[in-house]
Design a protein around this nucleic acid. Structure first.
Length: 415
RNA sequence: GCGGAUGUAGCUCAGUCGGUAGAGCGCCGGUUUGUGGUACCGGUUGUCGCGGGUUCGAUCCCCGUCAUUCGCCCCA
C-alpha cells in the first residue's frame, strides 16, 4: 500500500486491463492487414527536433508537455509525444520516399506531461496508421473507413460517431485565418481570457472553445466555407462522396480543428460521450508538409491515431484466456505422469496446467474456479492401467480414457 | 498550470464526539490428498497514503506533501 508507487500519470497494465489493451491492438492489427498496412516500430525517444520542428512551436504539446532531457552525450532527446512525426522521419531515414505509397501502422507508448484524468495519462498508448503518398481524397476516405472498421470490430460502432471537417489548403486557411483574427480583434472585449491568448498563438483553437461567451461570438464569425478556394472545395466534395462510397457515416462539424500544425484539408474525430471530457477516441487528418520538414520531398499523407486506453475502457466484453484442461494427479508418481501428459497436450496446442495443492476437494474447487473445461484425474490405479479419468466440468460426465487417446478425445469431443 | 472531491485489510466500504480499528467479499485450512463454484467450522490480513504540528495520547484536529478522481486548459 505504501512505499513505491508508479510515477504520476503512469499505470501498470495487468490482468483485465492488459487483456483489454491487447484485444484492441490485435483487432486493429487484423483489420489493418486487410487494407495492406504494415507494422513499423520506431524508437521511443528521438532527437528533440523531430517533434519541435514539426508539431509547431506554439502548440501546447511542444511548448509545455514534452519530456525533453539531455542525454549523457549532451544531445537533446525527447520521449515521443505522438507517432506521426517519427514515422515520417523513419520514412526519410530509410530512403522510402522513392517507393510510395507506404501504408504503415504502429502502436506503443507515448509521453505527454499533462494533468492526469480518466482516460488521460502521462504515459499512454496509441495505435496509429499513416498512408504516406496519399494522392487523392479517395485515400483519405479509405483510411477513415479503415478506422471505422476497427471500431466496429471492437464492438464500438454504437458508442462512437465520426465528426468531419475540412481545414482547406494552406492558401484557403491563411485567408480565412486573417479574416478570423480580424473579426476577433474587433470583438476582443467579448472574448474569454483564454481565447484572447489563443488569438495570438493559435486562433483556430478559438473555434474549439467551450466558453459560452466565445460560442456566441462564433455564430457570426467568418465561415470557413466562404474562404475555400476551388481546389479545396473540390477536395472536400470528393472526400465526402468517397466516404459515402465506402459506407462511412459522418457528421460535419466545422469546429473540429487540430492541435498540431501540420494538418490540411481532412480533419476528423471519432467521439464518444462515455468518457467525460476525454471524448475523442481516435482522431486524424491529412498532412502535407511533414515529410518535407524531415528533409524529404513534399509528400501528402493521411493518418490517424487512437488512444488505446480510451478504446479499451469502452469495450463491453473482456476477452478471456481460452478454457484450459487441468490435471489433478494424486500421489508422487502421478505428478510425474501428469508432467508428461501436460507436455503432450500443450504440443497439441491445448492450454493445460497441473494442480497439485491441497486435498482433492480443494483441487477441484480451484480447477473449476480457473475456468477449465476439463479435469484429468489420475492416481496409482490409472497409471497401472495406462488410463486417466477425463471429467467434463460443465456436464460432469466422467469417462476413463487411455492416455494415448487423450488428445484425440479432447479435440473431437468423443471417445 | 488552475479549481473541487477523495485516500482505512487484496477488493467494496463502515468506524473512532482524539485512547493505535471492524463488516462483507476474497484468501488459507478443516469436515479421512479420489472429485465441483452453493453448506458448516476455524483462521488470515492493516506502518488507518506519507511527513510535520497541536496534545499526556492522533487514523480522527491543523499544515504540508504524494496519489487518485471530476471540471478547466489541452488532447488520443
Amino acid at each position: 500500500m505504501s512505499g513505491l508507487q508508479p510515477p504520476r500519470g503512469t499505470h501498470d497494465l495487468i490482468g483485465e486491463t492488459m487483456r483489454r489493451h491487447h484485444h484492441v491492438v490485435e483487432t486493429a492489427r487484423r483489420v489493418l492487414r486487410t487494407y495492406g498496412f504494415e507494422e513499423w516500430s520506431t524508437p521511443i525517444f528521438e532527437d528533440t527536433r523531430v517533434f519541435s520542428r514539426t508539431l509547431g512551436e506554439t502548440s501546447d504539446v511542444v511548448s509545455k508537455e514534452m519530456y525533453t532531457f539531455e542525454d549523457r552525450g549532451g544531445e537533446s532527446i525527447t520521449l515521443r509525444p505522438e507517432g506521426t512525426a517519427a514515422i515520417c522521419r523513419a520514412l526519410v531515414t530509410n530512403g522510402l520516399t522513392q517507393s510510395l505509397p507506404q501504408k504503415v501502422f504502429y502502436h506503443g507508448p507515448m509521453f505527454r506531461y499533462e494533468r492526469p484524468q480518466k482516460g488521460r495519462y502521462r504515459q499512454f498508448h496509441q495505435i496509429g496508421a499513416e498512408l504516406i503518398g496519399a494522392e487523392s481524397p479517395l485515400r483519405d476516405a479509405e483510411t477513415i473507413a479503415m478506422a471505422q472498421d476497427i471500431l466496429r470490430e471492437l464492438g464500438l460502432g454504437e458508442h462512437v460517431t465520426l465528426e468531419l471537417n475540412t481545414l482547406g489548403d494552406l492558401a484557403s486557411r491563411q485567408a480565412w485565418r486573417e479574416a478570423l483574427v480580424a473579426y476577433f480583434r474587433d470583438h476582443a472585449d467579448a472574448l474569454s481570457e483564454e481565447s484572447r491568448i489563443r488569438l495570438e498563438a493559435n486562433p483556430l483553437r478559438i473555434l474549439d472553445s467551450k466558453s459560452e461567451q466565445d460560442r456566441k461570438l462564433l455564430d457570426d464569425a467568418p465561415a470557413f466555407a466562404d474562404y475555400l478556394n476551388d481546389e479545396s472545395r473540390q477536395f472536400w466534395d470528393t472526400l465526402r462522396a468517397s466516404l459515402q462510397a465506402f459506407g462511412v457515416d459522418f457528421v460535419e462539424n466545422p469546429r473540429i480543428v487540430r492541435g498540431l500544425d501540420y494538418y490540411s484539408h481532412t480533419a476528423f474525430e471519432f467521439v464518444t460521450s462515455k468518457l467525460g471530457a476525454q471524448g475523442t477516441v481516435l482522431a486524424g487528418g491529412r498532412y502535407e508538409g511533414l515529410v518535407e520538414q524531415m528533409g524529404g520531398p513534399a509528400i501528402p499523407a493521411i493518418g490517424w491515431a487512437g488512444g488505446i486506453e480510451r478504446l479499451a475502457m469502452l469495450l463491453d466484453s473482456v476477452p478471456e484466456l481460452p478454457a484450459g484442461i487441468a490435471l489433478v494427479p494424486m500421489g508422487d508418481e502421478a505428478v510425474l505422469k501428469a508432467a508428461s501428459i501436460v507436455r503432450t497436450l500443450r504440443s497439441a496446442g491445448l492450454r493445460a496446467e497441473i494442480e497439485t495443492r491441497g486435498n482433492m476437494k480443494k483441487r477441484m474447487e480451484r480447477v473449476v474456479k480457473s475456468g477449465a473445461s476439463h479435469a484429468i484425474v489420475l492416481g496409482d490405479e490409472e497409471i497401472a492401467k495406462g488410463v486417466v479419468q477425463l471429467r467434463d466440468l460443465s456436464s460432469r460426465d466422467q469417462q476413463e480414457v487411455p492416455v494415448a487417446d487423450l488428445v484425440r478425445v479432447l479435440s473431437t469431443g468423443r471417445a
